[in-house]
Design a protein around this nucleic acid. Structure first.
Length: 362
DNA sequence: TAAGCGTGGCC
DNA sequence: TGGCCAAGCTT
């Protein structure tokens, strides 16, 4: 947007957009979701955390499972961590799971079990950033804070033809300011829900301009730039890695290891791992395994299973080598878990699929 | 502050 | 089909 246009023209467009958006929301928006219209901050919070960088269709079942298992924040705070992680299994971005446990326990232990009712206190909670704080504040308490998510970036960039990259620090500030200016202060909750529904149904990445109530006022539509907005500047680099799992069995027990540190899948479980920076043969992997784990007496059951998984920043090649031990012995960094109990542990999706396909049937 | 964190659906 | 995207946050 050009500097000269930040004055009255934009304010006019704002007013028309808000009026039309709220009217569309009331008359035509049929989108239904279980947390919509919810006033319970616990349920709003849970839904918003689940939906971070996650599609509604994917998060829906997780939300229902969580509400059933943990109907209130006390139930979540009192739950064993492994049970919470097991419910989160497969949803990705597992730090969210760690954070809801921390925050639930903090609220129950230090805040009398009551969710904070002001925006700034919400922002202090682990896992709650600007978007989620605004969502809870506006949905639960109708406080005047505008949400700024992927939908809102897209919509505002198109309506006002703003080419500032949304993944830049400057862009975030600019869009945040604009979003707050557009917000109708007394109808924050209603407006925030409406604009995100509008982004999900009409002003999609590939937009349905023919259905749009605002196309006569949209600068991107006038210029034919819908598909060029919003602008992103960062290129992601994809790291390639090879995770060679040596699945160690003794009778019907499996050696498993819980991931720690700063890497992916923190706190999830895996099998004994040999990571390499390129593809190794099964024999090379077993050689490394013998050396690193101090285990040389075993029988190889299978070396064939290979698969890949694409993460946002990584391309992971998996190799599964199943071996069995003639006698039970300690496997470094691992614990022995009966096969029937493996299902109770949270695994990364690719490992879960391997286990379901090959391990339970051995 | 820029980089990193999962998974699945879409075209 | 591979790159992009989806109700972001933390470090």
């Amino acid at each position: 947007m050009k500097q000269a246009e930040t004055g009255s023209k934009v304010e006019m467009a704002d007013k028309i957009f808000v009026k039309k958006l709220l009217s569309w929301n009331k008359k035509e928006n049929r989108r239904k979701m279980p947390w919509k219209g919810e006033k319970n901050p616990y349920k709003i919070w849970l839904s918003e955390i689940i939906l971070q960088q996650t599609r509604v269709e994917q998060g829906l079942k997780y939300y229902e499972n969580f509400i059933t298992a943990f109907p209130n924040i006390q139930a979540l705070a009192n739950a064993p961590e492994e049970k919470v992680f097991k419910l989160w299994e497969g949803l990705g971005y597992y730090s969210r799971c760690r954070n809801i446990i921390t925050t639930a326990r903090h609220i129950c232990k230090d805040l009398g079990g009551k969710f904070p009712t002001d925006h700034n206190s919400l922002l202090q909670l682990k896992g709650i950033g600007p978007y989620t704080a605004a969502a809870i504040a506006s949905f639960a308490y109708n406080l005047p804070f505008s949400v700024l998510d992927g939908n809102v970036f897209r919509i505002l960039s198109r309506i006002f033809d703003i080419e500032t990259p949304i993944d830049s620090t400057h862009g975030k500030k600019e869009f945040s300011k604009l979003a707050q200016e557009v917000l109708p202060l007394k109808r924050a909750g209603e407006y925030n829900q409406a604009i995100m529904d509008f982004g999900a149904l009409i002003c999609k990445p590939v937009p349905e301009c023919s259905l749009c109530f605002f196309k006569e006022h949209c600068m991107a539509f006038a210029l034919g730039k819908q598909l060029l907005l919003p602008v992103k500047e960062k290129k992601i680099t994809i790291k390639e890695r090879w995770l060679n799992y040596v699945v160690v069995k003794y009778n019907s027990e499996i050696a498993v290891h819980q991931r720690k540190g700063q890497d992916i899948w923190q706190q999830l479980f895996e099998f004994s791992l040999i990571e390499t920076r390129e593809r190794y043969t099964a024999n090379q992997i077993l050689q490394l395994f013998e050396k690193e784990f101090g285990i040389s007496e075993y029988k190889v059951q299978d070396t064939q299973i290979e698969t890949t998984q694409k993460l946002t920043h990584q391309l992971i090649h998996f190799r599964f080598i199943t071996i069995s031990l003639p006698r039970k012995q300690a496997v470094p960094h691992c614990n022995w878990v009966p096969l029937k109990n493996i299902k109770e542990l949270a695994f990364p999706q690719s490992l879960k699929k391997f286990a379901e396909t090959y391990l339970y049937t051995l």
